[in-house]
């Protein structure tokens, strides 16, 4: 059993009903992450994108999450209140299936870092610039149990044990050591 620890959970709450589709979040995100800071902007580099289809009343601000090397086995498509959303619209991954969340020139993946800064920003920039309040920021502390860190081999063995059972592993190890 590990110790109890507190961690800060940073959440951007997205109220899609309040989104006016202006994309100010994309502008300021890409400007903040430019080098030097604010020296340029380019929504194609933004780590937040608004999936926007005004004639169908679709407004979904999506944040860049983890990079994934391969796409999912299938795709999803949501229909909510009669509105059909793009394939994978709510997914945050920088994924081979789409051009979202990749540097336009190098193709390198982009990921939202909650505007880590020194001194720290009060709120991520996209939230600061969304004065229609579609994006709001919440921070809370959460108690988590710190897990005892396992070694790499142990993780691997545990997976094998789950699959084949511990006895079979021990047999195999014994057999392998006899061969030597």
């Amino acid at each position: 059993m590990g110790e109890k620890k507190t961690k800060i959970v940073k959440t951007i709450k997205i109220d899609a009903d309040l989104c006016n589709g202006c994309r100010a979040c994309e502008v300021i995100c890409s400007a903040f992450h430019a080098t030097p800071k604010y020296s340029s902007n380019n929504p194609a580099r933004s780590r937040i994108r608004v999936i926007r289809d005004p004639l169908r009343d679709v407004y979904v601000p999506v944040y860049a999450g983890e990079y994934t090397a391969s796409e999912c086995m299938g795709r999803d498509k949501y229909v909510i209140d009669g509105k059909e959303y793009d394939e994978c619209a709510f997914c945050r991954a920088s994924c081979p299936s789409r051009d979202l969340f990749k540097e336009p020139d190098s193709g390198l993946p982009l990921k939202c870092d909650m505007c880590e800064d020194d001194p720290p920003q009060e709120e991520p920039l996209c939230v600061q610039w969304c004065i229609t309040d579609a994006l709001t920021y919440e921070e809370r502390e959460e108690e988590v149990e710190e897990e005892v860190e396992q070694e790499e081999m142990e993780i691997g063995l545990e997976a094998l044990a789950d699959k084949f059972g511990l006895d079979k592993i021990m047999d195999t190890v014994a057999r392998m050591s006899m061969k030597d």
Partner: peptide
Amino acid sequence: RLISCYNCPMKCGATITPTGQPT
């Protein structure tokens, strides 16, 4: 919905769907 132009918080426009017509 009330909607905006690029990079602007003012909501001067709206999507309108008259009965039986496209939005």
